[in-house]
Simulated scan of single mutants.
Amino acid sequence: MTTQLTPITEPYPEDVAKVLASYPQQGGYILALFRVFANSLRFLKKAVPNLLDKDSPLPLRIREIVILRVTANKNCEYEWGVHVSAFGSHAKLTDAQIAATRSDQVDDAIWSPAEACLLRAVDNLCASGKMDNSISEQFARDWSKEQQLEIFALCGTYHTISFVANAARLPNEPFGARFP
């Protein structure tokens, strides 16, 4: 019996199929990552909340900046590539900004002041689980409390997603972008 996480394949158990049907699909294709989640019905249902819904207090662009930075920090090319391909243009991210999500430094010239602070906040959270005081103060001025909590939830969720995708050694989706 293998202990390595791998995507489950069809035919899916009925209870798993029902939950997977609620996940995003393209032409009936279910991402390998979601099929890895399906190794545990509990995880599939509860462990990774869907923060990409229309009710988010964050605009798509800000959500994607957070997701790309977290997955880049966690060296998760699989999820980074899915989000670049699926949402990058909708989030109006330039090629330079997308590439910069992989940089160790924040280039203030290509981001708004709030976005540059957000990237630094995400870097702090990924590295130590907290923010430096100077970043925290600006972060609190830039984002409402509801938005701050959403950003923290995105960071935590995409840490988990990165851990799963990396542990499962998922190859990039055929449509997924590659790290620069």
Score class of each variant (00 low, 15 high):
residue 83 H to Q: 15
residue 63 R to F: 01
residue 108 D to S: 15
residue 121 A to K: 03
residue 63 R to K: 03
residue 116 A to N: 03
residue 85 S to Y: 02
residue 80 W to H: 06
residue 122 V to L: 04
residue 138 Q to N: 13
residue 140 A to V: 14
residue 85 S to G: 07
residue 90 H to W: 11
residue 88 G to T: 03
residue 47 A to Y: 05
residue 80 W to K: 00
residue 102 R to M: 09
residue 138 Q to G: 10
residue 125 L to C: 07
residue 94 T to L: 13
residue 104 D to S: 10
residue 144 S to V: 05
residue 128 S to N: 11
residue 86 A to N: 11
residue 124 N to T: 00
residue 64 E to S: 03
residue 131 M to Y: 06
residue 71 T to G: 03
residue 124 N to R: 02
residue 70 V to S: 09
residue 70 V to Y: 04
residue 77 E to L: 06
residue 86 A to M: 14
residue 128 S to Y: 00
residue 68 L to V: 04
residue 116 A to H: 03
residue 101 T to W: 12
residue 110 I to Y: 05
residue 84 V to N: 09
residue 99 A to T: 05
residue 55 D to W: 09
residue 135 I to L: 01
residue 71 T to P: 04
residue 127 A to L: 08
residue 139 F to I: 07
residue 110 I to N: 02
residue 68 L to P: 01
residue 55 D to Q: 13
residue 125 L to M: 15
residue 137 E to F: 13
residue 144 S to I: 05
residue 138 Q to K: 09
residue 124 N to Y: 04
residue 93 L to K: 00
residue 115 E to R: 01
residue 56 S to C: 11
residue 79 E to D: 07
residue 97 Q to V: 02
residue 61 R to V: 07
residue 73 N to H: 11
residue 69 R to A: 05
residue 134 S to Q: 10
residue 137 E to N: 13
residue 117 C to G: 02
residue 104 D to L: 06
residue 121 A to P: 04
residue 122 V to Q: 00
residue 127 A to I: 03
residue 86 A to V: 14
residue 95 D to N: 14
residue 62 I to F: 00
residue 59 P to D: 15
residue 67 I to S: 00
residue 146 E to G: 12
residue 133 N to C: 09
residue 73 N to S: 10
residue 58 L to E: 11
residue 145 K to Q: 14
residue 130 K to W: 12
residue 111 W to M: 03
residue 90 H to A: 14
residue 68 L to Y: 01
residue 121 A to H: 05
residue 113 P to S: 11
residue 134 S to P: 04
residue 138 Q to I: 15
residue 59 P to T: 13
residue 84 V to H: 06
residue 109 A to F: 15
residue 47 A to V: 11
residue 120 R to V: 00
residue 71 T to K: 02
residue 132 D to W: 05
residue 141 R to E: 13
residue 124 N to Q: 07
residue 76 C to A: 11
residue 116 A to G: 02
residue 104 D to V: 02
